[in-house]
Design a protein around this nucleic acid. Structure first.
Length: 466
RNA sequence: UCCGGCGUGGCGCAAUUGGUAGCGCAAACGGCUGUUAACCGUUGAGUUACAGGUUCGAGUCCUGUCGCCGGAGCCA
């Protein structure tokens, strides 16, 4: 007889039809024994949030021994008939005819119990936490978002560009870098008291990328529209629920886009992603709404249905000054907006996503395009209620002279960025782009409070285990 | 990095003015039931993060270290 292929629980539950001879493989969540002569098994195979209820009849050979091993966490291979369930709680259930245990899990030692665990505890067992409902749901949504990102850009003719992970660009204005070296740290070769990187692997001082933007610009100015989607690293000692040392970033870069086009794309992008998840991860999203954040579905629907508020930085400053709220940090033109200010704008003033643009030149990096007033740059940030900044972008400076001038003013060595200046010396074009923190997006969409719980194995200061 | 809080059985927590540890869940065993966050009973399980100190006596007070959480800064 031919081998019966595994069916995913998701497929079986979606069809809801009775079928004979189906094979299900997965992990036992709980077992409830009935002295009526059978046991109920809740099996999950990761294909969806829901478990499949399996009935193990006491007449099965070796029932006593087998059920004993069917503990929470054990892995099983089940063969049987999918039938309509006589009891409430599920439409179909599996009447098991053949049972095999791939791996048991000693209940005295298995850390996951059939009870709620704190996320703090689950982080300590990051290799086992994917077997929980919440982490399973988070990872399915995360996957769907990643897929939707590729879909969105490819539908629009963007080219997926792989920018380097290791780079010699020193300061891209985006934070501290992790150094990459093969030098013997116990005996670092030195010249004039400083490390001699000419003897290092790359013959130069290198680090892990903090952004693929500059490389992305080079390709946008040839292919038209590109996007990157990959890991990014920041060696900042940030200990917050919104920061990781290693995170994934999406960075589209488009030739011939001005700042308005850039903002249009960012808004369309976020709405597209949210809509996609609402449509394709309905069960998981329902779970988040019930167990994690009871407002999440309403919030997401609002985002899809309403346009984002777009407001000049200067107008936002006025608005904040006019508000009767007392802020911990004073508001004045030229200051960086604090988290409390951003929160006021998105959560109280407008109660929806806000796009702030035309920031003071003084608080933004050298590559952003200077406005005619020479005081502001064409920069924009998208602020989300509760989460804060999720997107930062700008139209890039395409004028050679101005770019050079701004580099010098910001203390960036033009020598090192000769190649970047070349993009303005040869066939320069107006272009724009933005960066989106992928984990923050997952956080926002799922309602999860801590960014460490939306990435499989989080990297934060003092934490690189697993 | 700064400010605040916390660190007690596998997990979540409790312990009055300092008087040498309890509860719930989980687990094991038994009972009961087409059960479904199952239910009922019994049992076992803790050098109270670590290192010092004060005291007749420290989970409780003090110092230091480590870790975790919340907020802030930096940002995505």
């Amino acid at each position: 007889m031919a081998k019966i292929k595994r069916q995913k629980i998701k497929t079986l539950l979606e069809s809801g039809a009775a079928v004979e001879n189906v094979r299900v493989q997965g992990w036992v969540r709980t077992r409830r024994d009935s002295k009526g002569g059978f046991s109920f098994l809740e099996v999950n195979d990761g294909s969806c949030l829901k478990n499949l209820q399996a009935i193990i009849d006491a007449n099965l050979p070796g029932y006593d021994e087998l059920t004993h091993q069917l503990t929470t966490g054990s892995c099983v291979d089940l063969l049987g008939n999918l039938v309509e369930s006589p009891a409430k709680g599920q439409s179909v259930e599996l009447q098991v005819k053949k049972l095999k245990i791939y791996g048991s899990a000693d209940p005295e030692k298995y850390p996951l119990q059939k009870k709620r665990h704190s996320f703090e505890f689950l982080r300590e067992i990051a290799h086992l936490r994917p077997r929980t409902n919440t982490m399973g749901a988070v990872m399915r949504v995360r996957n769907r978002l990643a897929w939707a990102i590729h879909k969105f850009f490819n539908e629009r003719g963007f080219v997926y560009l792989h920018t380097p992970i290791i780079t010699a660009s020193d300061c891209e204005g985006a934070g501290e870098m992790f150094q990459v070296t093969t030098l013997d740290l116990d005996h670092v070769p030195k010249v004039d008291g400083k490390a001699d990187f000419s003897q290092d692997f790359f013959g130069d001082k290198t680090g892990l990328t903090v952004s693929g933007q500059l490389e992305g610009e080079a390709y946008a100015l040839a292919l038209g529209e590109i996007y990157t989607f990959g890991p990014t690293f920041r060696a900042e000692n940030s200990n917050t629920s919104r920061h990781l040392a290693e995170f994934w970033m999406v960075e589209p870069e488009m030739a011939f886009y001005d700042l308005d086009d850039d903002m249009d794309l960012a808004e369309e992008f976020i709405k597209y992603l949210v809509r996609d998840v609402l449509e394709n991860c309905a069960d998981d999203m329902e779970f988040f709404n019930q167990r994690i954040d009871s407002t999440i579905l309403t919030t997401l629907k609002n985002i899809v249905d309403n346009s984002f508020e777009r407001i000049h930085y200067s107008d936002a400053i006025h608005l904040l000054q006019k508000s009767n709220k007392t802020f911990q940090y004073a508001v004045e033109w030229g200051c960086n907006l604090q988290a409390e200010h951003e929160r006021y704008l998105a959560e109280e003033a407008f109660k929806k996503p806000v796009v702030l643009y035309n920031y003071p030149e003084s608080i933004k990096p050298f590559y952003m395009k200077l406005n005619e007033d020479r005081e502001t740059v064409r920069a924009m940030d998208v602020l989300l209620p509760k989460l804060g900044e999720i997107i930062g972008g700008s139209q890039r400076e395409d004028d050679y002279e101005i770019l050079l001038e701004r580099m010098k003013a910001k203390g960036v060595d033009p020598e090192e960025y000769g190649w970047y200046l070349d993009l303005r010396r040869f066939g320069s074009a107006p272009h724009s782009g933005f960066g989106l923190g992928f984990e923050r997006l997952v956080q926002f969409v799922t309602g999860m409070e801590n960014i460490r719980d939306v990435i499989p194995f989080p990297r934060t200061p003092k934490h690189a285990r697993f």
